[in-house]
Design a protein around this nucleic acid. Structure first.
Lengths: 233, 233
DNA sequence: GAAACAGTTCGATCGAAATCGAAGGATGTT
DNA sequence: AACATCCTTCGATTTCGATCGAACTGTTTC
């Protein structure tokens, strides 16, 4: 009923180190098994199970049984959006910080990664800026719109726009990239675009990380079809 | 440094009933004294002080000393946005629910209230829909844009648009109204509009609540100048 | 200067939440 | 059928966070 109570409940669910790690892991939008998440969080399987029950109870994640495994995923894009919003506070609060050396892992994440279900990092930002330059989308600080020209081109690319516009999910919105400090495209359209890129083999997922690899074919096509320059690492 | 840790810290700060009540109270965008907040949260002043220190430590609120009082307010619009995003999960999760009788207090909130620093409730939604009908703004599920026509009219209304567009604050975005289940206008432009309405005496704040009162002059002008029909209660 | 008020700090208490060992249910493999 | 794997439930332990009484600092009022 009362919103403050709900707020406290959800905050309490998020506010545990182990659970926060799990939620961040789930931000890749995929399903993860309980064991996987217990490893990520650094706790015993029993403890992880207890945490996962709490997360599910708070409606933040959903579970799906397949075989002897249970796969957990974020309950909705709303959850991802809320998590991002909370992390945005922390990012804005932390000053440019000391110039510390980036590990290879961190560098890979900055180059190209998924953010829930769409692209982020230099890849995400480069694509977004190319979309804007070609007037496929209009992006303001907060939201965005697909232009008629953009709708045509994306339909031709194999994305069914009309289906998406029916859903309650934000369609085209901006999401501040923590590594690039610039906005990148998010929402249903960005998710569909990313999915299509995976299908076409332009981008490959890497194991155990949200970082992704751009294939040579991907780099070529991003340039030719969308005018986006992305660098292979 | 690491985002999951930050997420857990912030979640933990939000995740306490007393602090959640305080944060919700601060969602009106104004400064509140420690005593005021301790009353709202239903805890002793010492306890409130302890909570407020924790909130300030987490960069969620800022304190400003005036005389023998300290006034606390949300540290940034980012915080308000994050709180709204978290509450949006809870709202989406709770089904239409049982038809329970609304108290007078709740009804006043549904009619017209502030949401952080802009209008919400039937007032906020009516204005937003009128703006859209008159093509002053374009609002998608996620974000929004001010049309050239809208920019002209709002400038004439006494809102300085160019200053706002410089700031990092979202300029024009949509925010789901929990009582109306429809989007209302948010962001810097909505805040400026609300401020102007208070200045003109079209809307008055009420003590101890986020509900606001529309004055007869306000109702008339909303209709005449913006084509929005709002009902006096 | 005394009294009233706003707010904080300190210390003790209490309760809830996180952790893991042990054990059990379910599913898949040999 | 026996075994391994995945996950959960139960119970005991321990740590941490919230609360308030008491006492203290600073500000305003009389």
């Amino acid at each position: 009923m009362s919103s403050p109570i709900k707020l406290a409940e959800l905050g309490g669910v998020i506010g545990d180190p182990a659970r926060a790690v799990m939620l961040c892991a789930l931000l890749d939008g995929r399903g993860h098994s309980a064991t996987e998440l217990s490893l990520a969080a650094g706790v015993m399987p029993q403890t992880a199970s207890w945490h996962l029950a709490k997360l599910a109870d708070g409606q933040l994640i959903t579970a799906e049984k397949r075989g002897r495994n249970r796969y957990f995923r974020l309950a909705s894009p709303l959850v991802a959006q809320a998590l991002e919003a909370v992390m945005a506070i922390a990012i804005a609060g932390s000053r440019p910080s000391r110039s510390h050396v980036l590990s290879e892992r961190e560098q890979a994440l900055r180059d190209a990664r998924t953010c829930y279900d769409h692209f982020a990092g230099r890849l995400g930002v480069a694509l977004t800026e190319a979309f804007i330059a070609r007037k496929l989308i209009v992006l303001s600080n907060d939201g965005g719109l697909v232009t008629p020209r953009g709708a045509r081109l994306l339909s031709g690319f194999g994305i069914n726009l009309s289906v998406m516009q029916q859903s309650k999910r934000p369609f085209c919105r901006s999401c501040l990239d923590w590594s690039e400090q610039k906005p990148h495209l998010a929402g249903a359209i960005a998710a569909a675009f990313a999915t299509r890129c995976f299908d076409l083999g332009w981008v490959r997922r890497l194991p155990h990380t949200r970082a992704v690899a751009i294939t040579p074919a991907g780099a070529r096509n991003f340039k030719e079809q969308f005018g986006a320059t992305v660098y292979l690492v």
